[in-house]
Each structure stands twice: as C-alpha cells, then as structure tokens.
C-alpha cells in the first residue's frame, strides 16, 4: 500500500486493520510516535494526516492509503518549536513530547505566519487532547508561545531569611 510518509512516497505491506501507530513503529521503524493509552485519550501517538493532527492509535492503516502522513521524524531541521521545547523545558520525561509538538505545530505555523502570539486559551484548547503528567503544562505553554516570539517568563527565585 502506498502513502506519503514525511514527504517520501512509501510502500508498506501490512494488514489494513493494523493501527497506523504500529505500522509507523514496527513496519517503518519510526519509534518517535509513542503509545500512551491505546484509546485516543493521551495524544502521545499524535501524527499529522493530510495536515490534521489525529491519534494514530485509532486509525487503521487501510485508511491512510494515498494520504500524507507526517511524524516527529519528519520535522526536519529542528524547528523553532522544538528548540523552544528544549530551552523552556517543555519536555521533562519526553514521552508526550513528540505528540505535543505535532499537535502544536500547525498552530505555531499559523501564528508565525500571521505574526501573532497565540493566547493561552487557544493553546490550552489545542492541547486538550494531549496529556502530560510531568510539567503541569506550564512549560509547554511557554515553549509554544516563545516559539511564536513571546518573551520567556519563568518562576521567581527569592533568597532565604534564615540560611
């Protein structure tokens, strides 16, 4: 079966009901797409199909025939968003990170093109289907907003009275 994977036309022979997630990980060797729940709750398996973020654990391989699939491995050249995830510590354990980045990428691209910084509420609504258990999301918002040109605002540090 043919589909476009990260810009390259790719042929894979796999059962049509196999989950896109498993085809990517097992048949294509792209393990950057993660499985967190297998039921579309956590968003760790998010990839872009024809530009739209979807949960690859809920899509049969047969449904991406001739589609354009993009995974974290397809974000070439370390985008501003990826760099911001590093500098703002939007990734802690990192398992939700590829999904978060792919979910946020279309928003960041749009905002960058429009020369605006997405509002917190917009970022939150965009990421509502991506669970992170490490960060409390704060650093993730910061990474997305700084990737769009916002100034980084971090926690305050106060010296002690006693020691």
């Amino acid at each position: 079966m043919l589909f476009t994977l990260n810009g390259k036309i790719t042929e894979v022979s796999a059962p049509s009901m196999k989950r896109l997630l498993d085809v990517l990980r097992e048949d294509c060797g792209l393990t950057g797409t993660k499985e967190g729940c297998g039921e579309g709750e956590c968003g760790a398996c998010t990839v872009l199909v024809d530009g739209l973020p979807i949960n690859s654990c809920l899509v049969p391989f047969g449904q991406v025939q001739n589609a354009d699939v993009k995974t974290i491995e397809g974000l070439i050249g370390h985008t501003d968003l990826q760099k911001a995830f590093v500098s703002e510590c939007g990734a802690q354990c990192g398992i939700c990170t590829p999904g978060m980045i792919l979910m946020a990428a279309p928003l960041v691209e749009r905002a960058q093109a429009e020369g605006r910084i997405p509002a917190l509420a917009e970022v939150q609504e965009t990421l509502a289907g991506n669970l992170c258990r490490c960060t409390g999301y704060v650093a993730i918002y910061r990474a997305i907003q700084t990737a769009c040109g916002a100034k980084s605002e971090q926690a305050s540090v106060i010296s002690g009275e006693n020691g």
Binding site: L30, T31, T33, E35, I72, Q82, F85, I95, T97
Partner: peptide, 15 residues
Amino acid sequence: EGMSKVTGQAKYVDD
C-alpha cells in the same frame, strides 16, 4: 537529552 526528546530520537524501552 533535550534535543533527542524533542526530535523523537530518544529510545524508550518499547523503541
């Protein structure tokens, strides 16, 4: 390991 995590290159056990 920041860059390896944001590019999907970091290897977890199932990888």
